[in-house]
Computed example of a mutant assay.
Amino acid sequence: MNLFDKLYDNNENVPVRFVGFTTKDVRYDFGIVYTNMFFGKPLVICMQTGRSTLLDPKDITDLNHLQHVFRIDSQQEAEDLAEFFTEAIPASPFQEQYE
């Protein structure tokens, strides 16, 4: 019995970066998966909470988005994360996912 239609099933050998850092008030631990999937957006995982999101340079500038995704209370914490992600997430052109 076929209950599901498979949309994709890909394997990749991709770079993964694990980085931990502190700001004045907060410690962060992230895993960043630089994949060709998901339109080229890296998958960012908070290793402390398990929350994850796909981020591109435009997403990084949206501080409300960062606050929502990572459940951050202060604007300053979101600004600190945006500064880090600006350096960690490469500016890459939009990629067609389903060619």
Results as ranks from 00 to 15, higher is better:
Ala88Ser: 10
Ala82His: 03
Pro93Ile: 08
Val14Pro: 00
Phe39Ile: 04
Asp25Phe: 15
Ile32Gln: 02
Leu54His: 10
His68Thr: 13
Gln95Arg: 14
Leu81Asp: 02
Phe18Arg: 12
Ser92Leu: 14
Ser52Val: 05
Glu96Gly: 06
Ser74Glu: 08
Ile32Ala: 03
Asn36Gly: 13
Asn64Arg: 14
Val16Ala: 08
Tyr34His: 08
Phe94Arg: 07
Leu7Asn: 08
Thr23Arg: 04
Ala91Leu: 11
Pro57Val: 15
Ile32Asp: 01
Ile89Leu: 04
Gln76Arg: 12
Phe85Pro: 00
Asp80Ser: 08
Ser74Cys: 06
Leu81Ala: 03
Ile89Gly: 01
Tyr34Thr: 03
Gly50Leu: 06
Asp56Ala: 09
Arg27Trp: 08
Asp56Asn: 15
Gly50Glu: 06
Ala91Thr: 10
Val44Gln: 00
Phe38Ser: 09
Pro15Phe: 14
Glu87Tyr: 13
Leu81Phe: 04
Arg27Tyr: 14
Ala88Asp: 03
Arg27Thr: 13
Asp25Gln: 13
Asp5Val: 11
Ile45Val: 15
Phe84Gln: 07
Gly31Arg: 14
Gly31Phe: 03
Phe21Met: 06
Val69Trp: 02
Phe94Thr: 06
Ile32Pro: 00
Gln75Arg: 14
Lys58Gln: 12
Glu77Phe: 06
Asp29Lys: 09
Asp80Thr: 05
Ala82Trp: 02
Gln76Thr: 13
Leu54Glu: 06
Val16Trp: 04
Val14Thr: 12
Leu81Pro: 00
Gln67Phe: 06
Pro90His: 05
Phe85Ala: 00
Met37Lys: 07
Ala91Ser: 11
Gln76Met: 11
Gly20Asp: 14
Ile89Phe: 02
Asp29His: 13
Ile32Val: 12
Val44Tyr: 01
Val33Lys: 04
Glu87Asp: 12
Glu96Lys: 11
Asp5Glu: 14
Glu12Arg: 05
Glu77His: 12
Pro42Leu: 03
Phe30Thr: 02
Lys58Ala: 13
Tyr34Gly: 01
Val44Thr: 01
Phe94Glu: 09
Asp62Ser: 10
Asn11Trp: 13
Ala88Glu: 10
Thr23Asn: 05
Phe4Trp: 07
Val69Pro: 00
Val16Asn: 03
Thr86Glu: 09
Gln76Ala: 12
Ile45Gly: 00
Asn10His: 13
Ser74His: 08
Val33Met: 07
Gly31Lys: 15
Phe30Asp: 01
Ile45Thr: 04
Leu66Val: 07
Gln48Ile: 09
Asp25Trp: 13
Ile72Gly: 01
Ser52Lys: 11
Val26Asn: 11
Pro90Leu: 05
Asn11Ile: 15
His65Thr: 07
Leu66Ala: 04
Asp59Trp: 05
Phe21Pro: 01
Gln95Leu: 14
Asp59Phe: 08
Val14Tyr: 08
Lys6Ser: 09
Glu87Asn: 09
Tyr8Thr: 08
Thr22Ala: 13
Pro57Thr: 15
Phe21Tyr: 15
Asp59Ser: 14
Leu63Cys: 04
Gln97Ser: 08
Thr35Pro: 00
Asp25Thr: 14
Gly40Cys: 03
Leu3Gly: 06
Thr53Asp: 06
Arg17Asp: 09
Ile32Gly: 01
